[in-house]
């Protein structure tokens, strides 16, 4: 039964780890915009591809 001491310790450490992760997420401003990222992920990133290829032939 003494193993419970250890288990409780581990579970508390884990929980504190999540709490710290949450606080860091709030601090970094993740909760300030809950809409734009959901749109941003849907947008194509390369509409200017052709032009870039033509403009920067040296990079190829």
């Amino acid at each position: 039964m003494e193993i419970i001491f250890l288990l409780i310790g581990i579970s508390l450490v884990l929980a504190i780890f999540f709490l710290v992760a949450f606080i860091r997420a709030v601090r970094s401003g993740q909760y300030e915009d809950d809409y734009t990222p959901s749109i941003r992920i849907l947008l194509e990133d390369t509409p200017t591809q052709d032009k870039n290829l033509n403009d920067n032939p040296t990079k190829l």
Binding site: A15, I16, F22, I23, V26, R27, Y31
Partner: peptide, 12 residues
């Protein structure tokens, strides 16, 4: 932000 911290702590 402060309210979020408080909820986080209380939830934990």
């Amino acid at each position: 932000k402060r309210l979020y911290y408080q909820i986080g702590v209380a939830g934990f």
